[in-house]
Design a protein around this nucleic acid. Sequence first.
DNA 1: CTGCATTGGTAGAATGTTCAACTATTGAAG
DNA 2: CTTCAATAGTTGAACATTCTACCAATGCAG
Lengths: 159, 159
Amino acid sequence: MTAFVDHKLAGQELDTWNSYLMATLLLLDKLDHTLSDEAGLSLPDFIVLFRLSQNGDEGTRMSELAEAGAFSRSRISHAIRRLEDEGWVERRACPTDRRGSFGYLTDPGREKLEYAESIHTDVIRRYFLEPVGDSHTVIKKVTDSMATELGARPNDPAC
Amino acid sequence: MTAFVDHKLAGQELDTWNSYLMATLLLLDKLDHTLSDEAGLSLPDFIVLFRLSQNGDEGTRMSELAEAGAFSRSRISHAIRRLEDEGWVERRACPTDRRGSFGYLTDPGREKLEYAESIHTDVIRRYFLEPVGDSHTVIKKVTDSMATELGARPNDPAC
DNA sequence: CTGCATTGGTAGAATGTTCAACTATTGAAG
DNA sequence: CTTCAATAGTTGAACATTCTACCAATGCAG
């Protein structure tokens, strides 16, 4: 039995990947749609607001927001502008580095997030944590290892 | 020790979800960028061509393509038009149901896909299958269970 | 057979994301 | 101090995706 390496995925490799990809796409879709329908917030916007809420009064640098959700800087810039237009976020200059910009959650933004967060929690529990069950240690180990291999900054939670 | 249910994720729940989400976002990004840079094909387009290749001479219904990648019908319609413009795909009418439409891979499309597939395989092996290692049975079990809960059609591989 | 709800697919407008400059600032080398 | 590369962020245009409405075909109920 040789470890023959082909240039196409097949058998167990393909099955594992197929299953992971399909489940993930469906989950992200479900999350995005449920948040949009019930809380009027897209998943990317939710991730941004969530991250802003974690830093509280300190504010959050644009680049931090970008990394936290694996978004490009440009995307964050556009997203924050839209969120500012809605009145959920405020930008303030950074005093020590004049290139920098901080984002802050406004009170309406905090309210918006609070409700969205409960929706988010329900979906993740039902469609992710529940099926994962006791395997959470394995899942964490594997995904941490993936993230490391993919060059994630350590301790940089997506949300 | 009560099974206290909060409306926010915390502790192990949050850690597991964070890790999974971040790893997945980074992986999909890596896959998309590598395919785009080295094979001139976005991940969604790759998934469409791949699926078309699996049905070979029979062709593939638009709705099948949609389900296979968890895409909307509208998205598939636009995507197929673009792929047709590039000369990689052909549309033909369905003889038995005159509403229906089949997609076929052209020869240039098949060539395009072949190269892209080797890139795809490399990325998945290195950043997904490798970190997964022996845990593939657990991963498969968990993601199958997620997909079922999320209402996936059985035996409908994403790619 | 007729009427009508359902399905398969498409098209254009609105929205979001990516790409390619570009400005301003910082930090490091000489 | 000056120069220059690197960094933080923004902008507008190009492109992709979603949303909504729509057409044509189908199939089912009466």
